[in-house]
């Protein structure tokens, strides 16, 4: 049945991710100048790939919704935007952790690549806010229109590395300039994280459909985020001058997985709530 298939896929994803992470942390050769901290790339780049892919799916689903008005497409658009924001957050958090070591600063305010990625994140957060605050039937149409606008900015973000002066390393995969083993492991990780995102999207999509069925439009936001935001500034101010390079690597991995696991836990609690609500209404 569907559930069996889901759990089989989940198990596959776990194994694949474990393999990818092992490859990235242990097998991959150490980079010459950046040392072990470079291994953050094996979570940073796949997260970016996944985020861009999901935003693209969101764009396609939105167009399809405007064309056919199918509730499935709307659920898919809502799902991909939310999961995309999660992956984009991982990009935006692991990036500065690496940059603090490699560049010596958390954020370079005049770097177009960084700004445009942040802008993309803001865009899709505003998309989610929009979905939450619009009324009744107009939500899906307005959100689809907004999604199309948001996606128009994506090519700008993608090309920012090439058009503007930036410190951000350009995409190097499949170029002869890197060790083929690194490229190989990067591809494994990209695939693993893509599978992982499909898994989360699947989970989230089923929930969105349930939510549509019981017409529970108002979904609660994660309250834990507020506590996290209050703790975050403390970390930035408390950074001592000399930190062992390896701790940046651990911080990057911890942050990335903290976000993924946190999001999964959030989804679980939401699912429990939805199930309860569905049982009360008698739909499902």
């Amino acid at each position: 049945m569907k559930t069996k298939l889901f759990f089989a896929f989940a198990a596959f994803c776990c194994l694949f991710l474990a393999y990818g992470t092992y490859q990235g942390l242990v097998v991959a050769p150490t980079e010459e100048t950046m040392g072990d901290v470079q291994r953050i790339f094996y979570v940073h780049v796949p997260a970016a790939t996944v985020a861009f892919t999901l935003f693209f799916v969101n764009f396609l689903a939105s167009i399809y919704y405007l064309w056919k008005r199918s509730p499935q497409a709307d659920a898919l658009a809502a799902t991909t935007a939310e999961v995309g924001v999660v992956f984009c957050s991982v990009v935006l958090i692991t990036g500065p952790i690496w940059a603090r070591y490699a560049w010596g600063v958390w954020w370079s305010p005049w770097d177009m690549r960084l700004n445009t990625t942040l802008m993309l994140w803001l865009l899709y957060v505003s998309y989610l806010v929009m979905r939450r605050s619009s009324t009744g039937g107009s939500t899906s149409v307005l959100a689809s229109a907004l999604a199309i606008f948001a996606f128009l900015d994506v090519p700008i973000v993608y090309m920012a590395n090439r058009w503007f002066r930036t410190h951000h390393p350009p995409p190097m995969l499949f170029t002869p300039r890197i060790d083929p083993r690194m490229g190989h492991i990067m591809s494994i990780n990209m695939l693993a994280f893509l599978c992982f995102s499909v898994l989360i999207c699947w989970f989230r999509y089923e929930m969105e459909r349930t939510a549509q069925k019981i017409n529970a439009g108002h979904i609660q936001r994660a309250a834990g985020g507020a506590v996290g935001m209050m703790l975050l500034p403390a970390v930035f101010f408390a950074t001592p001058g000399h930190v062992a390079p390896i701790s940046y690597l651990w911080a990057g991995y911890l942050a990335a997985w903290g976000i993924y696991v946190g999001y999964l836990l959030f989804l679980m609690s939401k699912l429990a709530k939805l199930k309860k609500e569905a049982a009360e209404v008698g739909a499902g």
Partner: peptide
């Protein structure tokens, strides 16, 4: 026109407009 259709009308406009126009503003 989009934000006027939402529940918290005037509050929505900056939320939608500013991220979209960041490249232009830059």
């Amino acid at each position: 026109a989009m934000s006027i259709r939402t529940r918290n009308r005037e509050l929505m406009l900056p939320l939608l407009l500013l991220p979209i126009s960041i490249p232009a503003v830059l």
